[in-house]
């Protein structure tokens, strides 16, 4: 071995020490409470900025968004607000949003990656698509949500899923193109000098080499997928967390809006951690 040793390159631990993390969380809670107290209340007595207790006590309102059955009657037809109704309302609407978010992100990401890989194969096409790719990134996506309701109707999942898919695509496709374009040319030269054909070099060398550059686009797509799903439901769909946001805003229920924000934050953070773990595994070979 001539004195050479294998180097197991562990990642540097960049996390803040636990104590500092705890202090920052407590600090944020204190600021949140202070802002809630200072901001005052609206005409119907809800705080303009809901405090932590307002948010916690708003969760039973999810019972109002349970459509009934499984032994729990919907409140719209005379049922009581119960913890079972709260749990069912919470899970039912979260599940719908999850379907829209995950379905859309998966479709948009897969399509974005496939199209980026397919169109990067031939450099003239890649160059020709450089401007449209930037154009997709600049699309006013949120303003386009109502179009999906018009195109696909507001009572089915199609419009919401496809809107989220467009959002994910808008992140993944241009970043995929850029990642493939930035693979150093000597990788392909090396592969060709080893006897690989053009297609083999592309699929076995250039595309894998681009994966670490693509992971940022996928992570962004997941993060924005939740927001896009809520926007789609807000504008097009009668159920899901986005539909609850619409009702809560209509009735000035700032506490419920706060609860929805907290719930969405938890969902997005969980999905982010899961996707990052998956991407860490996929790129476990990268330095």
């Amino acid at each position: 071995m001539n004195g050479e040793t294998a180097i197991d390159e562990g990642r540097l631990n960049t996390r803040l020490p636990h104590k500092l993390t705890l202090i920052s969380i407590v600090g944020m809670l204190v600021i949140w409470v202070l802002v809630a107290l200072i901001a005052g209340k609206n005409e119907i007595g809800n705080r303009m900025v809901p405090g932590p207790i307002d948010v916690a006590t708003a969760f039973p309102q999810f019972a109002n968004y349970w459509t009934g059955d499984l032994g729990v009657t919907a409140t719209q037809v005379g049922g009581e607000v119960t913890w079972q109704g709260t749990v069912l309302g919470l899970f039912y609407n979260t599940f719908l949003t999850l379907v829209h978010a995950v379905g859309g992100v998966v479709i948009g990401t897969v399509l974005g990656l496939l199209l980026a890989v397919a169109t990067s194969w031939w450099s003239p096409i890649r160059q020709a698509l450089a401007f449209p790719a930037h154009f997709v990134r600049l699309l006013p996506l949120l303003a386009m949500a109502p179009l999906f309701a018009l195109w696909f109707g507001g009572e089915n999942h199609t419009g919401a899923v496809l809107f989220v898919a467009l959002t994910a695509f808008a992140f993944v496709f241009p970043i995929g193109l850029a990642a493939i374009a930035s693979v150093p040319p000597y990788y392909e030269q090396y592969a060709r000098s080893l006897g690989a054909s053009g297609l083999q070099s592309y699929l076995r060398v250039i595309v894998p080499a681009a994966i670490p550059g693509i992971r940022g686009g996928v992570t962004l797509a997941v993060g924005f997928g939740w927001s896009a799903a809520i926007v789609a439901e807000y504008m097009t769909y009668p159920y899901g967390l986005g539909a609850i946001v619409k009702n809560a805003a209509f009735f000035g229920s700032t506490d419920l809006l706060g609860a929805l924000a907290l719930l969405t934050l938890c969902l997005a953070a969980t999905s982010f951690v899961l996707v990052r773990s998956l991407l860490d595994w996929v790129t476990r070979w990268a330095e």
Partner: peptide, 11 residues
């Protein structure tokens, strides 16, 4: 060809 650069396929 053996290049000056590190061309080993990391994946």
């Amino acid at each position: 060809v053996v290049f000056q650069r590190d061309t080993v396929f990391m994946w």
